[in-house]
Design a protein around this nucleic acid. Structure first.
Lengths: 230, 230
DNA sequence: GTAACTTTGCGTATAATTTACGCATTCACC
DNA sequence: GGTGAATGCGTAAATTATACGCAAAGTTAC
């Protein structure tokens, strides 16, 4: 009925950030055996009286001190019995986004080291975290095309060229700048500000801002966010 | 490190079938307290040496004797600490489709009773299974529009009117029969057979068949399955 | 048998959306 | 001032979606 079951439940978080025109992932150095010293995803065991989501949030706070912009359940990894060498662990993985202008996670209590890695310069990860990361990355790529989550990776005020570059660097698809702009502006959830950037060479660019309230409204009116590429 | 954790892991399956022009869900009558006698989803505890997916498949076999056509992980429900009254249980829910021409699940060992319920004549379910079912139904509706899973709910050979009715009855959206047919045929993964149905009044209809191999090919060539409605 | 009705299957005109570009604007740099 | 670089706006062509009309091939009613 209520069997003696010898399986533990953990949570892991795949935290994506974007800076320097590149997608980054947050990793921590594992403190304990059996993966001591290896880079792994943020995570840990669920406490008895704690919801799954609360567990992820706690681990993020404890190990990295950062608060995320977006968080959703990704997938539960439990088909490989030997993910963890010492005992059976089922891990509920969460997918998180931060707008990492404040890139440095201030290492709090738990983590010796937490560090952002560019997606194409990852170290070998412990456990099956390579695989989990792969699944998360796929989710990110998919979601980018049908939900406006790119804005959760950008600072509140951003340039159109930032947004475009974010899409380009993650999806690695050619984008026609003019059509892209037309399409996004057409949705009507971006606010134009009167701030102007002169950081780059060339004509100064306006800063934009994602209006989430407006997006919710439009969504209820039936508009569909969707970005396809030639 | 490896804490004394008092949480059990279960799996549940939401099995959808389609017959009689209606979507159906498979339920079983719970044999044990605390929900004895109540209708619930097929499910049970995961065994120690068993993958999650294997656990679902075993439960389906044991409780209903049927093999599914499509199976994927849906979501892990573990935020409500008191889902189960007696102890904490985290449930990994799976989403399954059968082409229920053989509608009667032959009740094997475990299940007193297993029964198909039309989606709009459901009993009150035990645990939080109402909620889980709701999530599953939403997934079905979404997937129907961007993956050719409708065919997993139909017999191998089917009429276009069946397919149309399936979409109509699940999504409750008006469909223009002629444009719908044109669109689906346009994908190129349906095989026309020379069998003909005279079941209905009116002009006899050809039977069609979903060619999954062809679909995979076309998918790699970049075609996207997508069905939108006016 | 034939008229009425029902469902299937094909086609075409129109509207809407996507794609491919051209080019003026506005700054920095030399 | 000329050159180059990034931004911002617009327009024509191609593609796709929508709204229907209607012939074909059966069944049913009388």
């Amino acid at each position: 009925m209520y069997p003696a079951q010898d399986i533990k439940i953990a949570v892991d978080a795949i935290v994506f950030g974007y800076s320097n025109h590149q997608l980054h992932v947050l990793l921590v150095r594992q403190k304990f055996a059996p993966m001591q010293g290896q880079w792994v995803l943020v995570g840990g065991f669920v406490h008895d009286g704690e919801s799954l989501q609360a567990a992820v949030e706690r681990e993020l706070r404890e190990e990295t001190g950062l608060t995320v912009n977006y968080l959703e359940q990704l997938y539960t990894f439990g088909d490989d019995i030997h993910r963890d060498l010492r005992m059976r662990v089922v891990s509920v993985a969460y997918f998180a986004l931060v707008n990492s202008t404040e890139l440095r996670p201030h290492a709090d209590t738990d983590a010796e080291e937490a560090q952002w890695f560019p997606i194409d310069q990852l170290p070998k990860l412990g456990y099956d975290h390579d695989h989990i990361l792969e699944v998360a990355l796929q989710r990110l790529k998919n979601k980018l095309t049908y939900q406006p989550i790119g804005f959760d990776l950008l600072p509140e005020y951003f340039l159109f060229s930032d947004l475009e570059n974010l899409y380009y660097s993650i999806l690695r698809q050619e984008i026609d700048r003019r059509n892209f702009r037309k399409k996004i502006l057409g949705f009507g959830f971006l606010e134009e500000t009167d701030q102007i950037s002169k950081k780059n060479a060339g004509r100064p660019a306006k800063f934009f801002r994602f209006n989430n309230l407006k997006y919710k409204q439009l969504q209820e009116e039936g508009i569909m966010f969707e970005i396809k590429f030639a």
